[in-house]
Structures are given as C-alpha cells and as structure tokens.
Design a protein around this nucleic acid. Structure first.
Lengths: 187, 187
DNA sequence: ATAACCATGTAAATGGTTACATGATTAG
DNA sequence: CTAATCATGTAACCATTTACATGGTTAT
C-alpha cells in the first residue's frame, strides 16, 4: 500500500491539506496501523492531482498560512476501491523498543527502565486518546478498528504493568549467552 | 534499526546461516515485531563479516545444500550493545488488512469477509505458535516479549470474534460519505 | 522575542523489496 | 517425477526518510 493509496484513504474521510493528512497518520485515525511522512505525502498528492484522482482548492488563508485543500473525485474513489480489491499483504511491524526489551540483558539497567517507561507511556497515551474520541457518526469499519486498537493497547499496557518484574525482578547477568556462545540456534 | 543490527541480534541467539536468520524473522522469535528479507540479510552479513563483527564457517553440508554458519565476535556484541544505547524510534506498523477493514464500506461483502477471516486466522495461528513454545532456559527479555506478544494477539483475536457484528451486522451502505462528500475533515 | 506550530515543497541518500539466477535435498 | 524446502547471492527498482529551504501565525 503506497503513499498514494494512503492519501486517497485519508481524503475519503473528508477534504484535507497535506499537513492535515500527515496528522491523520501521526495522531489521527490511522495512527496505530500506518505511517507516512511529508516527503511521501506531497509528491503523492501532486501525482494524484495530475491523474485526476483528487482536486485542489487553494486556500489563501485567514488565520493560517496559505494551504491547498484536496478532495477526492469519483476517479479517486474508484482507484481507492480498486487498490483494496486484493489480498492484504501481511502486517509489517518494526519496533525498536521491543527489540531492545527482548535483549534486556544487553542494556544498562537505567536505559532498560527508560525504554520500558517510554513504551508503556506511549500505550497509555494511546488508550486515553482513543477513549476521548466520540464514536457517534463514524463508519462501522472505523468504529471496529478503533475498538480493536483500544483492546490491543489495553492488553499490552496491562501486560507490561503486571509483568514488569520479569524484566526488572531478577539479578542481572551481564552476559549474552551464559550457556556458551557458540551453540547453534535450535530449530 | 537496520538489517545489520537485526542480524547481529539474531546471531546473539546462537550461530545461524542467512537462511535461518530469515526464518527467525518470518516465524521465529522476532516474527511479531520485525521483518527482514533475503535481499537485506545476505548483503548485511557480508558487510558484518568484513567488519569483523561476525565470523563465517563454511558447512559443506551432509543432508542439506552447502551453507555458511555465522557467529558473533566480541566486536559484534559490542556493536549490538552500542546500537541499542539510544532512545528507540517509535513503532512503525503497516497493516493493509486493518486499512481495508477500516474502509469496510468500500469492499465487496465477500472480500471483506475474506480479509477478516484471513486476518483472524493469522492471529489465531500466532497464538497457537507462541503457546507451543517452551519457556525454559530463555532470557528474561525474550520471555517477557513472548508473553506480551501472546497477550496482544489474544486481545485482538478475542475482540475480532466478539465484535464481528460491527462489521457484518448492519446493512451495507455502498457510499463513502452519505453525509456529503465535500465536508472538511474535523480537527 | 522566541518557541512552537502551521504550511509546502525538493533533492539526496538510504535502505528495502522484487526479480532473477542457480542448484541441492526431501517428501509425496 | 514433482513440488516444496533448503540454500546463497546480485542487481534493478522502488519507496521512504532525512535534510534542506522557506515563510506565516500563535502563544508565552
């Protein structure tokens, strides 16, 4: 799913500027399952407009800098539908925080604690964020995914709070592989 | 976190070939929070070996094609530790399946059902996979992350089963925005 | 004033994915 | 005999990320 399709999806929720689309992926409705940066959004929007999939309206701005408000055309809607008419690719997750906690034995105690606290705080903030939203008037899919995000965030935050001791409880062994370094990894 | 660091992490779990490292990210211990393909692993391994961070042992193979078994050196261990001495980047998730369920109103009924069933089946398989593993003798971090993965997978699978009706229960409205297409997206 | 935020865009660099190319071994 | 799995590697392509460049607005 490329930046173009993602922008089409964002605009299916309502007209928006590139800046607003970015916010939808950063803290808005897509935040917990997709990401796009400016460097992908602006070029994607330019191409989409050229292809007639979106329209541009210049907003010379009162109370804010000049901006461009994009809106979906029928061609754009069709393109979005077509892009979703396939088997979804498997989820791709990249979590440095989990990688670090996985290798907790390699980290300084205080750094491990920082990583843990930072990560837990992210999930708690996410939970509060979702809870603060109003579910009235949104689509079924959106409501379903919102609930799913909340359920998974809560499960993770609960797990982290209840299992802190697994990471911090025991005495630290400052070695990678106390049982012998050159053991082959098992099947 | 680039492919080199990821390979270093994989080798911290025990000596392995490039092929085996791939499997660790596909179905092994890293499967639910990171991904790397062959096209990243083999070049990364070559560079790592050249930098003295890993050693190569040719295994001319009995019962399998020839392969190269890599092992971490002290330099490699230090490099892995150093790579983790920083604030972790925010998680990056890309889920086409969630994107599609979010826009359920755009999908044909049977396609939506396919996507839903496929996605639920992935999580159920993940749960069984984790449950089948033996927790004896693994590191604290690894055990902690394994439990966290299980908790979040179970929360998602449960949510999906209990809230199916939110996606399939109501009559389909085959329109993007029944309330008017050109409404601006809210703050 | 100054920092934070709103707003748009480009170019270079990085890095990952896909396709290609090859070949051995094992299970049905 | 055929498909699946084991095994390694390269090159072209594609996409994203980062840095750069610019400037208006709002709150402290």
């Amino acid at each position: 799913m490329d930046a173009k399709t993602l922008c089409l999806g964002a605009l299916a929720l309502g007209d928006a500027s590139g800046y607003e689309i970015k916010k939808m992926f950063e803290e808005g409705p897509f935040a917990h399952f997709h990401h796009v940066g400016f460097g992908s959004i602006y070029p994607a929007l330019a191409v989409l407009a050229q292809e007639g999939k979106i329209l541009v309206a210049e907003d010379a701005g009162e109370g804010h800098p000049a901006r461009k408000i994009y809106s979906l055309t029928q061609t754009g809607k069709d393109a979005l539908k077509k892009a979703m008419r396939k088997t979804p690719a498997p989820d791709k997750v990249r979590s440095e925080a989990i990688f670090m906690m996985f290798f907790s034995q390699f980290l300084e105690d205080d750094h491990l604690e920082d990583v843990f606290n930072y990560y837990l705080a992210c999930y708690k903030a996410g939970i509060e964020k979702i809870k603060s939203l109003d579910d009235e008037g949104i689509s079924d899919g959106r409501r379903f995914i919102r609930g799913m995000g909340l359920a998974s965030y809560q499960a993770i935050a609960n797990y982290m709070e209840e299992n802190r001791h697994l990471l911090f409880g025991t005495d630290k062994q400052n070695s990678i592989d106390p049982a012998g370094l050159s053991k082959r990894v098992g099947k």
